[in-house]
Design a protein around this nucleic acid. Structure first.
Lengths: 246, 246
DNA sequence: GCGCCGCTATGAAGCACTTCACAGAGCGGC
DNA sequence: GCCGCTCTGTGAAGTGCTTCATAGCGGCGC
């Protein structure tokens, strides 16, 4: 995930970066541990798509005819209401696979996917995937595990969202960001925020203003410190309390 | 589902109703279409549990070591906050299987299960289930489909809950109740409500009072009519409008 | 029939958030 | 360096719901 060559574009011109493909497939949860020759075969069957920031990969309601993986970049998974209100369900980073539900059950996509940065995406088309799943029973087991994990996340998100107030949800989000992307510095845990406040708000299903006011209040209370493009959690204990409150 | 002998207790005394077990297993989504001898074997490996109304089958956080199915009765799946606020995720009826997530991934249960009526429950213990899944690759496919369906429902529920106001959610709930348990009568679609208003509210993640006030308002507006233990949808079109509103 | 209990009905007050409106801050382009 | 972005900060008003309080209704036990 924090690979060396992450910063530069995956391939200078049009040639397919087939080692990238293999590396992604080999490292991705769903295909991990499969025989090398199967991986190579899959890599051969897969396609590459490049998306400029903001480009839409698929939309809610589309037909789900492929499985995707992020090689480079960031993809936002989100649902939207008829009136355009949108909430983001997750951000997919290099190494993550997504789009499995509609792929597996053949029904319309439950969410949309959009490039949050310029991205390089691996595409495995439906027939190829099923071909493989027939050939490799162990894969089914992996798929089941992936789905369980997704289902767990989904249920957790739902109960958090319906049972907790915004302050607790935001506190938890900061904690999980710290766990995933944080670095211990003196005076606390530093989170390099790639996220704007409005993106954060969208992940929490709240308005930008509400998130801003909480962050500001916590700053004044000494729980957080703002740095350029980053937030430092200065008093994790107090954040714990907020996260645990109703 | 509307089986003949549904009203009387599944078995007079202690003898295991093994035909009931086989029927449930054969008819349940997850095991449908499997060879009869496999079904019989599974039925032999399964256990029966009887639960009085209100009895708890498992709680959020418990170890998930079994898969369950409802033979007779009704089981409520719900999540609760630390402060005791509770919201119900689903009601399991005869023929439904549940408890698969924790069974499959071995992590703590994401939700709790409680008998909403006196119930007879089929229990398939973890080792037996995995034994079977090894022996019958087709079963894995069914499990994948079941998980996809659950994941879809879960995502849908989440977006409904975060994007829609209570009136739209209630309207949709009434529509889906009508679709599942409704009967066309003159003057509209009649739903025989086994649910009290507070149970309804719990399914929508709202307060009893708020649900009551909406139902009342819609009654006055001629959209609904209240009958004893039932609700009649008199103006489905207007309910559609509410369901589609933000 | 009386009393009790759970369900329904409804108003009043409060609260957590949203929406709107606006101001400043930082930054990249030319 | 100034213009035009997008992002941040903040107050005021509004709203959709919750919580609390109170009352009536209906059925069931004895």
């Amino acid at each position: 995930m924090t690979q060396s060559g992450r910063r530069e574009p995956a391939a200078r011109s049009g040639e397919p970066p087939s080692d990238d493909r293999e590396r992604l497939i080999r490292g991705s949860f769903i295909f991990r541990g499969l025989e090398p020759e199967l991986i190579a075969r899959l890599a051969g069957l897969s396609r590459i798509r490049r998306l400029a920031k903001g480009a839409i990969l698929f939309q809610q309601g589309d037909e789900g005819d492929a499985l995707y993986g992020v090689i480079v970049g960031l993809v936002r998974i989100s649902v939207a209401s008829a009136a355009g209100r949108e909430i983001t369900l997750g951000l997919m980073e290099p190494g993550d696979m997504f789009g499995e539900i509609a792929l597996l059950d053949g029904l319309p996509r439950t969410a949309g996917a959009q490039a949050a940065e310029d991205s390089v995406i691996l595409v495995i088309d439906r027939p190829h995937f099923f071909e493989l799943i027939e050939a490799e029973p162990r894969l089914a087991r992996h798929v089941i595990e992936l789905l369980c994990e997704r289902l767990r996340r989904s249920t957790d998100r739902f109960s958090e969202h319906t049972l907790l107030r915004l302050d607790a949800r935001l506190a938890r989000k900061l904690q999980s960001l710290a766990a995933g992307h944080g670095r211990a510095v003196r005076g606390g845990m530093r989170i390099a925020l790639k996220l704007s406040q409005s993106e954060l708000a969208q992940m929490l299903g709240a308005s930008r203003e509400a998130v801003n006011k909480l962050l500001q209040r916590w700053s004044r209370a000494g729980i957080l410190r703002h740095e350029r493009g980053a937030i430092v959690i200065a008093a994790p204990k107090r954040l714990d309390e907020i996260a645990a409150s109703e």
